[in-house]
Design a protein around this nucleic acid. Structure first.
Lengths: 224, 224
DNA sequence: CGCGGGTTACTGAACGATTAGTAGGTTCGC
DNA sequence: GCGAACCTACTAATCGTTCAGTAACCCGCG
């Protein structure tokens, strides 16, 4: 796909993966336009010019982040739909995969956060991918309703609610915090699916300690 | 609070409210740093310098947006908690008020979207307000669990899920679109509360037409 | 009634800081 | 000694902010 040949050289600190992961984190924290290439370079302990050896420009960096996020999301969906399971179970799987992927690989990337940040060509491509993802989600929800598993509702609005909850995760997720990615994925998927299912499903995953003890929050973006 | 005396003059197109509402919309679309004062001025059909007659600077504009969003949120909570109603009904009221307020008054403002955009003083103030709001939400959820109305779960994580769903609304909400604010507020509140309640609550508000017909999406940030 | 000082609500132009992107040199492993 | 990987130092452009001016309007004074 790209010119990578013998890139895993000796002192090659800078891999495409590392650059993408760090960029995504900084983009999420400070916004695309609020992030300077020096910010990213500093987070990678290199200079700005070193980045330009690996990536074409800043916009391309953002594009790759979006593309990766979409790929993770779609992969989760395809896996879930391939399983012979009821819609609620499929939805739970798809969401769980997406959330874990976002948290682990990217520390999250927000899809199309800032309009006008991507070039028109890239914008179209990402919008197309995002629409596909949203369609898949709505179709799954509508199917669940038709099958009598889900409560009647507007799949579009509920889909937006689900995506909002998931896309917001990078805003508060702290890899060093008390909640690990799999735990979050499980809790979110359970809660978000439970709002749709007709049958009273089993209890949501409870916190490790008492519910009251969990009220102390992660400071999230306070601590930076 | 301000020096406004006879401001409702003849050609006074520019009111504080209008500036805030328009700024919030543009900030939400393009991000804080991605928004130039010329963008906002153009949306208001004035020049950039005219803005400086009404507001101190760009950062102050963002601060006011955040403050207004927090005020709307907290007001909804206080109203809901003042009612002698069970936790699920209180939560529904609080969320509904917040969502309608965001959509109507501001077309939404995203709380603390870009770190480092606010001055340290303003940042502290908004973080304090946001933490209060989150605490109120978690306390309400925890209370509902203790009262046996809500399913056992982690109030912190579920709270994040709810806030994410709500804060994401400005990203796709289109005042000219098919879904009006009260409808969205009702659907969201119902879905988000339903994921918590033990008793199988009545069906979610269904779309006006068939569920399948609603699958055609608003193009949202495609159309701009 | 008119006229003049004062205020409100802006405009256009400029400045200064920031920052994406570049040009060209340097180091290090093979 | 050669090229991959990186650095230092710069440029060009954007954008927040300031500032001097100005048109329209209000109010009191003669």
């Amino acid at each position: 796909m790209r010119k990578r040949k013998t890139a895993a050289r000796a002192g090659a600190h800078l891999t495409r993966e590392r650059i993408l992961a760090v960029s995504a984190r900084v983009f999420n924290r400070r916004g695309y336009h609020g992030t300077t290439l020096d910010d990213i370079a500093r987070a990678l302990s290199v200079t700005k010019a070193a980045l330009y050896y690996h990536v074409k420009n800043k916009e391309e960096l953002l594009f790759q982040c979006h593309q990766l996020a979409l790929d993770i999301g779609m992969e989760g969906f395809h896996r879930a739909l391939a399983q012979p399971a009821p819609p609620d179970e499929q939805l739970r799987m798809a969401l769980s995969h997406y959330i874990e992927g976002m948290a682990d690989q990217l520390t999250g990337t927000v899809v199309l956060l800032e309009q006008g940040a991507l070039s028109p060509r890239h914008h179209r491509q990402i919008v197309r991918g995002r629409d596909e993802y949203e369609q898949a989600l709505r179709t799954l929800i509508a199917g669940g309703i038709a099958a009598g598993v889900f409560v009647p509702c507007d799949p579009k609005l509920v889909g937006f609610a689900i995506l909002g909850a998931v896309h917001w995760i990078p805003k508060w997720y702290n890899p060093a915090g008390p909640s690990r990615a799999p735990e979050i994925a499980e809790a979110f998927a359970a809660y978000l699916v439970r709002g749709l299912t007709k049958q009273p499903s089993p209890d949501l995953p409870a916190p490790r300690r008492t519910a009251a003890a969990a009220e102390r929050g992660v400071p999230h973006d306070t601590a930076a």
